[in-house]
């Protein structure tokens, strides 16, 4: 039982985080507007489609936000729970290309559709028909943030991201084993290092494939030129090269030492690369390259512990996979010694 607690803990954490990730509803949101282009200086009737909203007549207030200015809607006709028609006059002189739509209602909270409207005529700011301040409602309950483009896929946060954390943990374990090899030259440490590399590559592959699927659904391509993707690709290449190096040396002691040296060298350079990279290239990922981090629009900070639970849990699972391989390696060494004798 003594050696089992952390395995149970890991499984429990992963289970809890996965159930929460799949079971938590998405927050109500505006998903579609028609028309999507504004003609400044004219009246508009905008059809709005909500997702999981419950529009109640006379309670819905809408605004268009452009460059920090809020334009209130005149009247909102509620058609049903998820459909509404906004009647409003759009003043001339809006500053930015894109406007956000804000719909606020008690219960549902304030919902924002980012870049909802294109504004073909740019000005230097509207001078009338703007609101001094906005009515804000806060949503009650526990939900995933609902962003356009992402929608349901935001649940992947608890599956895709922990893969990378686990990969990095396993690579660090492999680095420690490699340093031990340099100090002791022990066969077991070398086997530990290679087992950790194998496990880290498994998680890297899962991270790459899940990321690719997610990217296809949100960014429209299986692979994009992105700082984080470049970092991941370099990481995978380094550890594949590590395995090739091992494959090309037959003498065991020499193989252990050469592989350990390469591991230490490559790990440090990779670490520098990953730290410096986001500053050099653009990224579509949240929290880098000027994109808002998830946490910035993640109104439910209660979901954050769930994400950390997923990361910790998956690290535990990764450690368990490594643990099994390491123990097997120990048995293999014993068996080989016994056969030699």
């Amino acid at each position: 039982m003594k050696h089992w607690w952390w395995k149970f803990l890991a499984v429990a954490l992963v289970l809890a985080a996965s159930i929460t990730a799949l079971r938590t509803p998405l927050a109500p949101a505006i998903v579609h507007v028609e028309p999507a282009t504004l003609q400044p200086g004219t009246r508009h009737a905008i059809e709005v489609l909500g997702y999981r909203t419950q529009f109640v007549p006379n309670e819905v207030i809408a605004y268009i936000e452009n460059g920090g200015q809020f334009v209130p809607a005149g009247r909102v006709d509620v058609i049903d729970d998820t459909h509404a028609r906004i009647h409003m006059y759009v003043p001339e002189g809006l500053r930015e290309d894109m406007s956000d739509l804000l719909v606020t209602a008690p219960g549902a909270g304030t919902m924002r559709l980012f870049d909802a409207f294109y504004n073909p005529v740019k000005g230097s700011g509207a001078t009338h028909d703007i609101a001094a301040e906005m009515t804000v409602h806060h949503r009650k309950g526990f939900a995933f943030p609902n962003r356009n483009l992402l929608y349901e896929t935001i649940r992947n946060l608890n599956f895709h991201v922990p893969m990378w954390f686990t990969m990095m943990m396993l690579q660090t374990v492999s680095l420690v084993f490699s340093i031990l090899v340099l100090r002791s030259g022990a066969e077991l440490h070398d086997r530990g290092a290679v087992a950790a590399v194998h496990a880290s590559l498994l998680f890297a592959m899962m991270g790459l494939v899940t990321g690719s699927i997610w990217a296809r659904a949100t960014w429209g391509g299986w692979w994009t030129t992105d700082a984080k993707l470049n970092g991941a690709a370099v990481t995978v290449l380094i550890y594949l090269a590590y395995l090739v190096l091992r494959g090309s040396v037959t003498d065991r002691a020499k193989r252990a030492r050469l592989a350990a040296i390469y591991n230490v060298f490559a790990y440090v350079l990779m670490l520098l690369f990953i730290m410096a990279l986001p500053r050099m290239t653009a990224s579509l990922h949240p929290g880098s390259g000027g994109n808002p981090a998830f946490s910035q629009y993640d109104l439910d900070s209660s979901l954050r512990p769930v994400f950390y639970a997923a990361v910790l849990g998956w690290m535990g699972i990764g450690a368990w996979l490594l643990n099994l391989r390491y123990r097997l390696a120990r048995l293999e060494i014993l068996q080989e010694d016994a056969r030699i004798r």
């Binding site: 290449l237 090269a241 090739v244 090309s248 040396v249 050469l258 390469y262 410096a276 050099m280």
Partner: peptide, 27 residues
């Protein structure tokens, strides 16, 4: 030096060197 010690020539060097030189190359 690693490739030479591994007794494998330029082929191994390219495989080992390419991913570690990428950071330098991009910068």
């Amino acid at each position: 030096a690693i490739a030479a010690r591994a007794g494998n020539g330029i082929g191994l060097m390219a495989i080992l060197g390419f991913p570690v030189i990428l950071p330098m190359l991009l910068a």
